[in-house]
């Protein structure tokens, strides 16, 4: 599937062309401060990028912009080398896991996935839904209302919801929230599988030990600016500490 001209225009900058997703000069301003400043980054296909940074670094803002939920104040997002506007063709190929479960408590697990399958226009989704629920360990609970689920079970369903359309980009904002050890292992396995079939994963998590097991690359932010972008080799916690040690002061709006 390709992005349509209605939702994507040729990029003016070539470097992002190789990556599934890239940002160029991305900035986001709020009333009195910048959450992101002049960010350039790439998220190649078939990789997991660990998006790291202290609270308020701009991780959730970046994920919000990549998902099209938020608009940037400046700069651009490139999707497969073309400038992205967050249209349906792009949204069809993005899976999103946020801080909250993003499912309906009154519906069963299967009904939730059926509903989202309809929104994604996935025909004959029942077999795919049953296979996914089985994969995330909810086969026995698929016909139970989600409001009776534990937080970890609801998070497993959230992962299934995000993976349902087989996205080529997976945005993961604290995806391990509420998961027990087995759940974390399962989530990392699912992320690894998505990467192996060519998806670009961007994962923001404070669980560095778990993130290290699956991440190939890291993008480290502090105060809205990039401190490090590159491969993860060895100790992610050490890389993180080293990167933010040289962080720049917080950018304040209106300051010279």
């Amino acid at each position: 599937m390709t992005t349509t001209p209605a939702t994507a225009t040729p990029a003016s900058t070539a470097p992002g062309a190789a990556a599934t997703l890239a940002v160029r000069g991305l900035g986001r301003a709020y009333d009195d401060h910048y959450a992101l400043v002049g960010l350039d980054a790439e998220f190649p296909a078939g990789t997991v990028t660990a998006l790291l940074g202290p609270n308020g670094a701009g991780k959730s803002t970046l994920i919000g912009i990549l998902s099209s939920r938020q608009s940037p104040s400046e700069g651009q997002v490139l999707f497969e080398g073309r400038r992205a506007h967050g249209g349906p063709a792009m949204r069809r190929r993005i899976g999103y896991v946020g801080h909250r479960t993003m499912v309906y408590g009154e519906l069963t697990a299967r009904e939730n996935l059926r509903f989202f399958a309809q929104l994604f226009g996935i025909g004959d989704a029942d077999a795919r839904i049953d296979a996914l629920l089985d994969r995330v360990g909810l086969a026995r609970d698929k016909d139970r209302p989600v409001e009776g689920f534990s937080r970890g079970m609801a998070q497993r369903l959230t992962l299934a919801r995000a993976l349902l359309p087989e996205p080529s980009v997976l945005l993961l904002d604290e995806p391990l929230t509420g998961l027990d050890q087995a759940g974390v292992a399962l989530a990392l396995e699912l992320f690894g599988s998505a990467r192996d079939r060519g998806a670009a994963l961007i994962m923001a998590s404070h669980d560095l030990a778990a993130t290290e097991k699956v991440a190939d690359r890291a993008l480290i932010l502090a105060n809205g600016r990039k401190c490090y972008e590159g491969p993860v080799q060895g100790d992610l916690a050490g890389l993180y500490a080293q990167a933010i040690a040289g962080e720049l002061p917080a950018p304040v709006k209106g300051a010279a």
Binding site: S67, S68, R69, P88, A89, R91, R92, I94, Y96, G98, H99, R100, T101, M102, V103, Y104, G105, E106, F116, L119, F120, G121, A154, R161
Partner: peptide
């Protein structure tokens, strides 16, 4: 309020649905 409870509304509008 129901849509906001677990933020399912966000998942809905981030889908390709018009």
């Amino acid at each position: 309020a129901r849509e906001a409870k677990d933020d399912a509304f966000t998942a809905m509008i981030l889908s390709p649905a018009p």
